[in-house]
Amino acid sequence: MTAESPLPRRRRVGRRKAVAAVLAAVLVLATCAALIASGVLWPNRLFASGYSTRGVDVSSYQGTIDWPALASENIDFAIIKSTEGSSAVDSRFAENWSAAGDTDLLVGAYHFMSFDSEGATQAQNVIDTVPDAPGSLPVTVDVEFYGDYFELPPTQTRVRDILDPLLAELEDHYGSPPIIYATPEAYDRYIRDAYPDNPIWIRSVAVPPQMSDGRDWTFWQYSHRDRLRGYDGEETFIDMNVFTGSLDELTALAIG
């Protein structure tokens, strides 16, 4: 038998190394994907760590909240879902509002804006539900797509016909311009280059926010995959946010 040429052997070794490298890369990517999906790893946490004032937003999906336990989780503020549209009220709002108010957290409420009812009736739903409590954060109006509106977004004219009177009536009642929460898509379509007096709360859970009109954000929702102590609802994760300034500046915003 003749001796085997060394060149083919080197090629086979090279192929095995290449295959091993690809498999290792796939394993690393799969592991990272699993850690991100479970909330263990979240790249935005690194960027958000540069902001010292942190908080959560919650709704009935977090179930019963042990507010002293949650407040001890290195957070400074909590924004609680109150209402939706012209008639819906979060089933745990009153309980959450009262219990959160007994902690040292700065507390606010948010309203999920409907594209299907008028701004005046939505404002009345908020006013009937959210107390005008001294020292609470300005009311937030949440502007984002839902249901069929992901595929068929309403026109800017339609949304602003709802949003403008909603913001105006809430400001008139509570004495401060409401915060506007928006996803990047909703911001670009409906908020961009408008509402200069309203603090912006932007959702950007994959990367740090880049406002398309160069505006500065006031709040940034950087994660929807965190886990903290103090709640037991069907939603195991909790949304995490940072405020752009210091705790004293956030307190000043609450005082108005």
Rank of each mutant, 00 (worst) to 15 (best):
L70I: 08
R54T: 13
G39M: 06
M113K: 02
Y51H: 15
S87I: 06
I80P: 03
Y61E: 05
A100S: 12
S87A: 14
Y61P: 01
S98P: 01
T53L: 09
K81F: 09
W42E: 10
I80T: 11
I65M: 08
F93P: 09
S82R: 09
E84N: 12
I65P: 03
A37W: 14
D66L: 03
G85C: 13
A69F: 00
G50E: 14
A48I: 09
D76M: 08
A99N: 14
D102Q: 15
V107E: 04
F112S: 09
S60I: 13
S98F: 07
V40I: 12
F77H: 14
Y110D: 06
A78C: 07
S72P: 01
W42K: 01
S49K: 14
P68D: 08
F112M: 02
D116F: 07
A69C: 00
E95M: 03
N74W: 10
M113D: 10
E84K: 04
W42T: 02
S60E: 15
A37C: 02
W67N: 01
S117R: 05
E84H: 13
A34E: 11
G63K: 12
L106I: 08
A37G: 06
R54K: 14
N96W: 03
G85F: 05
T64K: 05
F77W: 13
S114K: 11
M113L: 10
S117I: 01
A71Y: 05
S87L: 06
V58K: 10
G39K: 04
Q62R: 05
A78F: 10
V40F: 12
Y110V: 05
A34Y: 06
T121H: 04
I80N: 14
A109S: 13
Q122P: 09
